[in-house]
Structure formats: C-alpha cells, structure tokens
Design a binder for these strands. Structure first.
Length: 499
DNA sequence: AAAAAAC
C-alpha cells in the first residue's frame, strides 16, 4: 500500500445527515450533532478504512447529524445514510475513535500506521453497532471509497481475543485481489496487536502439501469462497471459535449470479457450530432483489442504507462519447487519453477477457505502454500486474470486472468504460457494476472522471440512458468523438487538468 | 454470448 498521502480533501466541516429510525418498541427522536471540526481523511486502502466509534450511553438511539451547508469538500459520504436498528440496543455515533473503547494497540494502529484522525461517517455509525454487545448482525451500505474496509477490519480486530490461538474472524471476498488487499489493511491496522492472520486463496497452500498442512491457527482468515470451503471441508479451518463472519461486496456474495450458494453454505456451517456468531454484510450497492434476500436471510440485523440517487460520487464527473465504429474507441484512448500527460492513473474496463487482450494488443502495437488483467491469467501474472499498478510503475491498466469492485488505488483519476456493463442473461444494464467501476476513481473524495465509450449502433446508448435515469446522474455528452478540445474541457471541468 | 472462484 502506498504510504504516501497525496492531496487529501480537507476543509471546513462537512456534514451530512444521518437518520436513524428504529424498528421495535422504542422510537425516540434522534439527537442532533453537528460536526464542526475540520475533517481530514486518512489514507485509505481499499474500500475503506477508518475507525469506529463507540457506544456511549444508552440513551435513546442514535444518530443523527443534521446539516446545513453543502460541504465544500468532496466528501464521499456526504449523503444520507438511513439507519434501522433492530431490537432495543441504543447506539451512539462515534465522533472519535476514543469513543470505541479499543485496545491501546489497536488505537496505535489507527493513528500511527493508518494515520487516521477521526472516523468517517460510515465508520462513526457502523462501528458502535458492530462492537456493542449483543453483537447484532449488520447490513451496511455506504459509498465507494468511504471507508467500509476499515469498518469491518476494525470490527474483526476488536472482536478477536489475542490470547486464543484459533480462527475467530472470517472475511469472504469475491476476488483474490480483494482478499489480498483486505489482508494488507488488516495487517497494517493490527500491526501492534499481535493478532495473526492468513489469506485463503487458491494460490497459497496447494497440492500435495495441502493435505499435510496443520489446521489454521491464525486468528483472522480472509479469503475467496472456494478455498474457504475447501479448507473447511478438509478440517483445516476450525469453526469452533468463530465469532464474526464478514462478507465484503456482500450483494455480490449473496446474489444468484454471484456466490450465493457458497456463501449460504458457509453461513450454515458456522451457524451449526456457533449460533451466536455475528454476520457483517458490506457493499456500496444492494439492489432491491438482493436487499430483500439478505434481509430475509440475515435476520434481525441492524441496517444502514443509502438512497440510490445519493450513491453517485459528486467528485467524479461522468461523460459519454458516441463512437461510430469499434476502432474509434481505440482512437479515443490513443489520442485523447494516452497523449494526455499527467492526469494520474487510468483503468479501462472491458466486458470480456478476449476484449482485454485485444485492446491491450492494439495499444501495444501503437507503441503504448499498457498492461492488462483478467481471470485467465496466472495468479503470479495477476499479482505482478496489479502490484506494478499499485506501485505506480504503470499508468494505464486494462481490466475485466475482476477489478470492478473494491480495488483501491488512490491515484486512479480516470475510468474508461470501453464496454458498458450489462447483465449476462438479459442484456439489461448492470447498474451495480457500473457504480463500482466509477468508484475506482475518486477514492475517498478525490476528483475523478469517467468516459463511457458508446457504439453508435447497438444497445450502448440505451444502456447509458437507463443508467443515467437509474441513478439520476448527470452524464454529459462529448459531442464530437474526436475533438481534443472537448475532452480537455471535460477533464478541466473534472478538475484533472489545469486551465 | 460472461467476470469471478474452484473443483
């Protein structure tokens, strides 16, 4: 992870309003707090990082910060988060990490290693819910780049008993890259705690050596579904002391076209051994279908949701360009992006592994230095390409949706949709994937831009319109696909180019 | 007609 902190949005207090309502007996009005201190976001890893707050007195409920002025800072969590708590446990938003009763070792990790100053919005609200007994389940939605990772990583670390050398916390991720990235965050944040952790992805511990390996003694395990299932099936991962299970990108982990079967299986196996375990579901997106399913599946959970219209990141400007032919998309990338100079890093998303190779080849043949990642590459190759990009050794990365979710590289300022995201079965827009791709830019409130490259013929224009309508987002059109001036003014408007 | 995980 980068230790450098580049420009962080700072500014006067930004506030947002958070509503808390309660299902259950008590319905008390929420209290209002206004944040007036300066806000400074710490360097964030993947999806998030932050801290938590604590639970304070058991008064009524929670949490509400009303706000007035629009924030002048590009804070990703500027919009409302609707909180619904289950039962009568009162929670108070944590405005400081000190409110969370964390161990001194963990606090040191937050301040010294992570360089955090104070909890982000989602952290302030969710951490008390995660940490406070009776440790109810949590379904939490928050914006891309707003600090979700910190919520669940801190949640896991704070719940582990360091003296018990057994797996106690488990985190399931949709890709190996995300598992690795989350592990990096966990090790950094937990650096002074002595808590042990292990990644469970196919690449490690394989083949003949697997059968002979000792059962996991690491206290936190982060991995991908297949490998975790395998470890469990072979009794390498004991569940007896598991007290917390986290699903990163939870909507995808519980979608029928995602990892629902694996996820349900793992939940069931843990529940059989430990009925009182805690489940945390985190994602920036929960469409109505998945939301309904998870609400029925993870019962009596505390819930945090963001309205669809509030989900788009204000700091990331979106544009669309209609290209007459497929080849013109390559021309756009070549003339308008590769020749731009210094605007930070770029990710070009494509639909298939074959397109990834094609686009890569086309640009490479023109002499441009680009790299690409997709799921057919060897794990070593994937790791190498991703690491080079994270180390800023490469500027332009072509990727399939392997990297659509969760991938945290703060220097990504530009996202290009070479192909629009659509659902496999229906051809309908994949709204969630679109939002996640956009979220690869503008991490933690940074400025960014998205160029959607649409083909003149076909469904692209309709797909784009539906996405605009769905999020109520403003997507400006670049009228002439080959007009350098238009791209430049777009990038200036997005704040990526100087006047 | 697919991205991803992994058997």
């Amino acid at each position: 992870m980068a230790d450098t902190i580049d420009k962080l949005p700072t500014g006067e207090a930004s506030s947002s309003s958070v509503e808390a309502s309660i299902t259950g007996e008590n319905t008390e009005p929420t209290t209002t707090t206004t944040t007036t201190e300066k806000t400074k976001w710490g360097d964030v890893e993947d999806d998030d990082e932050e801290e938590a707050n604590a639970v304070s007195e058991l008064n009524s409920l929670s949490i509400k910060e009303e706000e007035k002025h629009e924030s002048i800072l590009d804070e990703p969590e500027d919009s409302n988060i609707k909180a619904v708590t289950s039962g009568d446990t009162p929670y108070t938003s944590a405005s400081r990490f000190e409110d969370l009763n964390l161990s001194p070792e963990l606090m040191k990790g937050l301040y010294v290693e992570m360089k955090f100053e104070k909890p982000s919005k989602i952290q302030a609200i969710s951490l008390p819910m995660i940490i406070t007994p009776p440790h109810k389940h949590l379904i939490a939605q928050a914006h891309n780049g707003s600090g979700k990772t910190t919520c669940f990583v801190l949640g896991m670390l704070s719940r582990v008993d360091p003296s018990l050398r057994q797996p106690q916390a488990l985190c399931i991720c949709p890709t190996r890259e995300l598992a690795n990235q989350n592990m990096e965050v966990l090790q950094k944040m937990g650096k002074f705690t002595g808590i042990t952790a292990e990644v469970a992805v196919p690449e490690s511990n394989q083949g003949a050596t697997f059968a002979r390996r000792a059962p996991v003694s690491a206290q936190v395990v982060i991995g991908t579904p297949g490998t975790l299932k395998k470890w469990m099936a072979f009794k390498k991962l004991g569940l007896n002391h598991l007290k917390i299970l986290v699903f990163d990108e939870a909507d995808h982990m519980l979608a029928t076209d995602g990892f629902r079967d694996d996820s349900l299986r793992i939940m069931k196996d843990i529940k059989r051994v430990n009925p009182n375990y805690q489940v945390l579901l985190f994602s920036a997106t929960f469409n109505e279908t998945v939301k309904d399913f998870v609400q029925r599946t993870v019962e009596s959970a505390n819930q945090l949701f963001v309205k669809r219209e509030d989900l788009a990141l204000d700091s990331v400007k979106q544009y669309k360009v209609v290209c007459p032919k497929e080849q013109d998309k390559i021309e756009v990338i070549k003339d308008q992006i590769m020749e731009l100079g210094d605007i930070g890093q770029t990710i070009i998303f494509v639909k298939t592994k074959v397109s990834a190779s094609k686009v890569h080849k086309a640009l490479a043949e023109m002499g441009y230095d680009v790299t690409s990642v997709h799921g057919s590459m060897s794990q070593e190759e994937r790791d190498k390409i991703v690491k080079e990009f994270k180390d800023c050794l490469t500027q332009v990365l072509i990727a399939t949706d392997v990297l659509a979710r969760g991938f945290d590289q703060q220097r990504v300022n530009l996202v290009v949709n070479y192909n629009m995201p659509t659902k496999y079965e229906t051809g309908e827009p994949d709204y969630e994937v679109y939002l996640h791709r956009v979220g690869r830019a503008g991490r933690f409130g940074r400025k960014g831009a998205v160029f959607n490259l649409l083909l003149e013929n076909g469904d692209d224009k309709e797909v784009m319109e539906k996405i605009e309508r769905y999020f109520g987002a403003q997507v400006k059109e670049i009228k002439s696909w080959n007009s350098e001036e238009e791209y430049k003014s777009a990038l200036k408007e997005a704040g990526l180019l100087d006047e």
